[in-house]
C-alpha cells in the first residue's frame, strides 16, 4: 500500500493508471489463488463453497479493475473512494465481530476500518478538488503502516492443541 501510494502522490495523472494496474493484479491473483484452493482442497470441506464465491468475486473485481484504464481520472478516483469506503465498512464489521468473540485485537481493526471509511467519504465529498488524491494517499499510507504494525505485533490469540 505504501509502495502504491508514493507514485500516486508524486504524479497523480500517471499514478491513476499505475494504481489501477497494481490493484487489478493483486485482486486477480488473489482470486485465482482462492479458486485453485477451492478446486484442490476446499470443495471437500463443510462450507467450502464460500471459498469459491470469494475467489470468483475477487477475481472478477480484479479483471474489472484492470479494465478501467481508459476512463476519466475522476471516475477512477470515484471508484477507488467507493472501494475505500467498502473496505472500511468490512473492516469495522470484522472488528465488531472480533470484539463479540472476546478477542483483544478488535481496537486496531476498528481504527483501520474507521480511517479507511473516513478517507473514502472525504474523497467522495471532495471528489473534484485536488486534495482528494492526497486524502486517498494518506488513507493508503495509514493502511500500509498499520499492516506493518499488525505483522510485528505479539500475537495474543490462543492456540489449543494438546
Amino acid at each position: 500500500m505504501l509502495f502504491i501510494s508514493i507514485p500516486f502522490l508524486i504524479d497523480p495523472s500517471d499514478g491513476y493508471a499505475f494504481i489501477m494496474i497494481m490493484l487489478g493484479f493483486v485482486f486477480t491473483f488473489r482470486g485465482i489463488k482462492l479458486i485453485v484452493y477451492y478446486i484442490t482442497m476446499a470443495r471437500y470441506m463443510v462450507g467450502g463453497s464460500r471459498v469459491l464465491f470469494s475467489g470468483i468475486l475477487i477475481f472478477d473485481f480484479g479483471l474489472f479493475t484492470l479494465s478501467l484504464n481508459d476512463i476519466p481520472p475522476l471516475l477512477i478516483l470515484l471508484y477507488l473512494a467507493v472501494l475505500h469506503v467498502f473496505t472500511g465498512l468490512v473492516t469495522i464489521v470484522n472488528a465488531v465481530d472480533t470484539k463479540k468473540r472476546g478477542s483483544k485485537s478488535w481496537r486496531l481493526k476498528m481504527s483501520i476500518g474507521l480511517v479507511n471509511l473516513i478517507a473514502g467519504i472525504l474523497c467522495l465529498v471532495l471528489l473534484k478538488e485536488s486534495i482528494a488524491v492526497d486524502i486517498y494517499c494518506a488513507g493508503m499510507v495509514y493502511g500500509g503502516i498499520m499492516r506493518i504494525v499488525t505483522a510485528f505485533r505479539r500475537n495474543k490469540e490462543i492456540v489449543i492443541i494438546n
Binding site: 472476546g102 490469540e157 490462543i158 492456540v159
Partner: peptide, 29 residues
Amino acid sequence: HKTATDDPEKGLYSNSIFQNNENSIMNLG
C-alpha cells in the same frame, strides 16, 4: 476466544479463532 479457564456449569468454552488460511497454526489439531 479467551485464555480464561472453561466453565462447564455456565457453558463457557474457549476455542482458537477462525483463520481462513489453510495452513494457519490456528487450524492445528
